[in-house]
């Protein structure tokens, strides 16, 4: 019975092959080198993680002990008071700038992704990205001359917000563009194939699918608007009292740090206020970034679920 079947027998030559990472051969060295690279490279993350942790630690330590609820609700007069005026100013500036760049950016991005000829789209994206890389201080200078001097508005929330919106625009523009591009072409073909007009597709199908990503763009622009200083230094002016009109200058969180960061020690309260402002900025920006990541992850999962 057993004579008719063959038990597995392996080629004798192959027995000599060593498949393990032992010994001192060339292959062993290569494998060990790879292993050590894999162990050492992650140490580079110290460079990334250390600044964040150190920053959080020190800023929190300088900000939190003196921080009370009244810090957020009282305006600053001279060298006493809190951050109310600055928070209000940042809200106005970032909110207004977001309204401006949101409208322009979403329409621009939508057009680029859905209607523009490939050449127009390529150039629109190129210019969008170039604008995103333009030094903020240069935009600030331009805003100063164009909006503060030439229009005669003086330093004001309006001038600051418009200048800021120029800086924020590319992010909304770019994410909207990408959001529409990332809508699976099958969805588009399906709806157009069912006889929908392009506009119907865009607003009934494309926009809802793309919306989460557009939202991430808006949040990122908001984070940038809240955290940016350079475009505002010469345009938004400086007024400690809470602003009541768009033609007034205002204080704002980043400007507060910028103004008081090198105050002498006898004005310790202002330095503490700077740290508190930095802490608030940190929380806002990190919070917005986390929200963006969550939305992004959900969006990807949803798209996967739709088309897997």
């Amino acid at each position: 019975m057993s004579g008719s079947v063959n038990r597995p027998a392996f080629a004798p030559a192959s027995v000599a092959d060593d498949l393990s990472a032992r010994g001192f051969g060339r292959a062993t060295r290569r494998i060990l080198f790879d292993k050590w690279i894999g162990r050492l490279l992650p140490l580079l993350f110290i460079v990334v993680v250390f600044p964040i942790l150190d920053m959080i630690w020190w800023i929190a330590q300088n900000a939190l002990p003196t921080m009370t609820w009244s810090t957020l609700t009282t305006p600053l007069y001279g060298d006493v008071g809190g951050l109310y005026g600055a928070i209000l100013g940042t809200t106005y500036l970032a909110g207004l700038a977001l309204a401006i760049c949101g409208v322009l950016g979403i329409f621009g991005g939508m057009y680029t992704a859905e209607y523009a000829s490939p050449r127009t789209a390529t150039f629109a994206r190129l210019f969008g990205n170039i604008l995103a890389g333009t030094p903020a201080i240069v935009i600030g200078y331009t805003g100063y001359f164009l909006l503060v001097l030439y229009t005669g508005w003086g330093t004001s929330i309006a001038a600051g917000a418009i200048t800021l919106s120029v800086f924020m625009l590319p992010w909304v523009f770019r994410t909207t563009d990408l959001a529409f591009l990332s809508v699976p072409p099958t969805l588009r073909e399906a709806s157009l194939g069912l006889g929908a007009t392009h506009r119907q597709y865009l607003f009934r199908v494309g926009f809802p699918v793309a919306f989460p990503r557009i939202l991430t763009g808006i949040f990122i622009a908001l984070a940038i608007g809240v955290g940016e200083t350079a475009p505002l230094i010469f345009t938004a002016g400086w007024q400690l009292a809470p602003a009541t009109s768009l033609t007034q200058g205002t204080s704002y969180l980043t400007g507060l740090i910028w103004t008081y960061f090198d105050e002498p020690a006898n004005l310790g309260h202002l330095l503490a206020l700077s740290f508190q402002a930095a802490f608030i900025l940190f929380v806002i920006v990190i919070g917005l970034n986390v929200v963006v990541q969550i939305i992004g992850a959900r969006y990807r999962r949803r798209l996967k679920g739709l088309f897997a």
Partner: peptide, 20 residues
């Protein structure tokens, strides 16, 4: 099993397996 040994066995390195 390759050459009588399990390529998923302990101490076996994928890099060497793929060479063979």
């Amino acid at each position: 099993l390759y050459g009588g040994r399990n390529i998923y066995g302990a101490g076996i390195d994928a890099v060497r397996v793929r060479r063979r």
